[in-house]
Every structure is written in C-alpha cells, then in structure tokens.
Design a binder for these strands. Structure first.
Lengths: 138, 138
DNA sequence: CGCTTGACTTAGACAAAGTCCATCGTAGGA
DNA sequence: TCCTACGATGGACTTTGTCTAAGTCAAGCG
C-alpha cells in the first residue's frame, strides 16, 4: 500500500496519521469497503478518528483518481483502491460479495453514434450480477 | 400507459386510485424518475397520496417485473417503465440526465469463464457516462 | 345493492448514509 | 521553535428509504 501513500505524498498531500490509516485500510485486491467499514477498521488503529475525516479522505482520494467509487446497490457506496488497472465488477445478488473482473472487448465501442444522443461519452461501467459459489451451495 | 395498467390488472392487482396515478406518472420513453419525483407528480393529481404508498407501489411494480430500478449514483434510485425492451443507460455526469441506449454486442459473452470466480452470472448492467449536449454547450 | 373482509393507504416515527460547519489541533516550512 | 494554513473533530442536519398501527375501501358474496 505504500504505493498509494507514495503517490499521495507526491501530489503534495499533507501526511497525517488519519490519512495514513485510511490508506492502509484500503490496501489489497478485491477490496470494496463502505465508508463505514473503513471507519470501523481505522478506529482499531486510531481510536479517535472521526467519521467526517474518513468521508473527507475517501472523497479526496477519489478526486485524485487514486481510488474508485463503486455503487452496486441502493446501500452505501464502496471504495476500490484498484484504480490503476481498468476493470469492472461482478456482484453476488444474495450476499453482496464483489469481485474485480476484466471482460474482453471494449463496451465503449459497442455504443453506435446513433445511440449517443449527442453526448460526449467518456466512460463506461459494467456490473455483472449473479450468485457466488458460497451462496449457491448454501 | 393503459398497457402497464392492463398488465397489472391481469396479475390480480387490486386497482386503486393511487396505483393508477403512479402508473400514469411513469408512462413514456426515457422516463427515469426518482420516488420523490413520482410522488410530487402524483400529488398534483391526487393530493392526499402518501410517500409510503408511492414507495410501496413502485416496489411492487419492480417485483412484478413491470418497472426497472436504476441506480446511477449515490442519490435516489430511479424507476424506468421500459422493462420489456432490454436496454442500458447513458448518464450525463453534470446534470444527471439519463437516456435509454441499446449497444450492439452482448457484454455477458465478454466475461470469460476464468473471470467468473465460480459465480452463476445471470445479468449485466452497462452504464455509459459522459456529458450531454445541453451541458456541453453551457 | 349493501355487507364483509382483507388488502391497501396513511402519517409520522425511525433508520442509514452522507454533508456541513464552527472550532480546535497539528504538519511542515521559515 | 514558532506560525499558520490545512486538516480533524463531532454534532447537527439532510436526504432517501423503511416500518408500523390504525383507518379506509375495492370487490366478491349473498
């Protein structure tokens, strides 16, 4: 994760204990925590960190493009540190588990000009839905 | 919209003034209203309709498969009556405008078995993002 | 036709997720 | 080491949605 920390430093981020903890909590592959989950884990390392700070820090990371916001359902937004490898998401409809996936092909090129309604289309998010092995066998 | 009303009747729905109004409000193409917007419009026709009823009715329509829930951002869910023609969505990042689009190709077949992590994948949602003509010229 | 019944509606309390703001604290440069 | 602007805090507030207890009404039945 020092990877993420390094990048943030390099952008003139003022380093504080709170920011370090949030960045550390977000480390790893297939990590998709909600803001509250990030807060809960951060608290175990830095008991006095506030919810507002977690929200602020996550928001800044998103703005800097170091973390991606994922909205897979009506519930809370999730935060995905895997921002530097383009990917999409596979979500379990039963338990909400999320995996990063990389489909073949480019969905952007699948949208013909006639279906763009004059928009300048810049991005596409693909969410696959199904049932994960654990839920299927339960 | 009598189309939607007819289908609902046929499923043994008890017909009430409230349900009729909600169904009528949802009529049309490229309609993606939030529950609150549906309520606001319903109130102009039936002043005493309550928020809870609008939520209940929308939820039932979704369960019956006559209306689709669309979650494009952190804000409110939107309701799309165009449930019987498969389609995806194009969203303006500035003003939130939504258009129904139909890309070529099938994203489901773009997810190789090795990227499915044992999931039984049953559905895929594609959200294109960009800037609409109105926002681009403003 | 009017009765009955259970499905439907209502208002408001409640909950979850997130934002805002005034104030206090501190990282890091001089 | 001292200063100061940037960051952190926590509590109030907002938005979106759910739940519940009590009242209302659509529609089948006689």
């Amino acid at each position: 994760m020092s990877d993420l920390l390094e990048r943030l430093r390099g952008r003139g981020w003022r380093m504080t204990a709170q920011r370090r903890v949030v960045a550390e909590v977000l480390d790893g592959d297939h990590v998709h925590l909600t803001a509250d989950e990030v807060h809960a884990r951060a608290v175990t390392r830095l008991p006095e960190i506030s919810r507002a700070t977690v929200y602020n820090t996550l928001g800044e990371m998103v703005t800097l493009g170091e973390v991606i916001e994922v909205t897979t359902d009506r519930r809370a937004k999730r935060y995905d540190p895997n921002a530097h490898r383009p990917h999409h998401h596979l979500v379990c409809d039963r338990c909400g588990a999320i995996r990063d996936v990389r489909p073949t092909g480019d969905p952007l090129s699948d949208l013909p000009a006639g279906e763009r309604f004059g928009f300048m289309v810049s991005d596409v998010e693909v969410t696959y839905r199904g049932v994960c092995p654990e839920c299927a066998s339960a």
